[in-house]
Amino acid sequence: MSAQVSSNASTSRAPDNHGLRLAVRYLVLVLIAIIFIFPLIFMIMSSLKPDGQLLSDTRSLAAFLPVGDISFDNYVDAFKRAPVLLFVTNSVIVTGVTVVLSLVVCSIAGFAFVFIDWRGRELMLTLLLATLIVPFETIAIPLLLIASKLPWIGAEGLTFGWLNSYQVQIVPFVVDGLTVYLFIQYFKDLPGELIEAARVEGATWWQVYRRIVMPLAGPVVATAAILKFLAMYNQYLWPLMVVQEETYRPVMVGLQYFFQLNRAWGEIMAYLSLITVPVLAFYLVLQRAFIASIASTGVKG
């Protein structure tokens, strides 16, 4: 929008400069795009080359081009070396469930902090914000001790200890201070009279949440979902600590297969290319939802 406005303005003042300015602007944007996209191109191209060529190509621009001995052998070998699909499935399950639960629980928490008056609200908010400055590494060991003793009712009846499971990778990350805070900040900017109008019209708090607040929360839902997805999909330390069995192993921990015995760079690149697909797919889907939600809400009207 601003680019359009300023280019219109420059058209009316100095038509000769317009084309040049546009060219410079696009040149800069293309350069930035290249800087961001080159590592991805390098990864994908390398995944198609044998190790020897891959390493020798890094001395020239050939590293970014599909030249020389090109094949999908690395992908075939990667699938042989590690259960890639299982790892991707595990990560998608853990990430997907965590994102959905997190959006529901954190938005309800944010709603309660902003719209409902309850005793201890300020204290709870302070505690919540305090958790933002605690690095995960400092609580990882206590959390591991707790998780190793928690009860669970599953197919085998009542068991103790959550290690080697999906829930141990999901439950500790459903609520986090940052996501709740994102919702709080967004909800604070919603016009208070909308909520009061809904209350006067007879809506319960749950109806206000579901019919008024959440339909207007598209942008923050998209933002929170993207942040949560990336954080969960990239989990390494926690699953490394709590998951020893292949059955529940996520993608990042799965990487270690390719560093055992011999370091096969082509296979690593093939593996990385494969596990990038869900991230890109998720981002592209949500990016559309993000833009659509901004375009359709227009809270200010």
Binding site: P191, E193, E196, A197, P215, L216, T297, G301
Partner: peptide, 10 residues
């Protein structure tokens, strides 16, 4: 009826 009308934009 509110000053800002408070009609639901969605």
């Amino acid at each position: 009826v509110f000053q800002s009308y408070a009609i639901f934009p969605h």
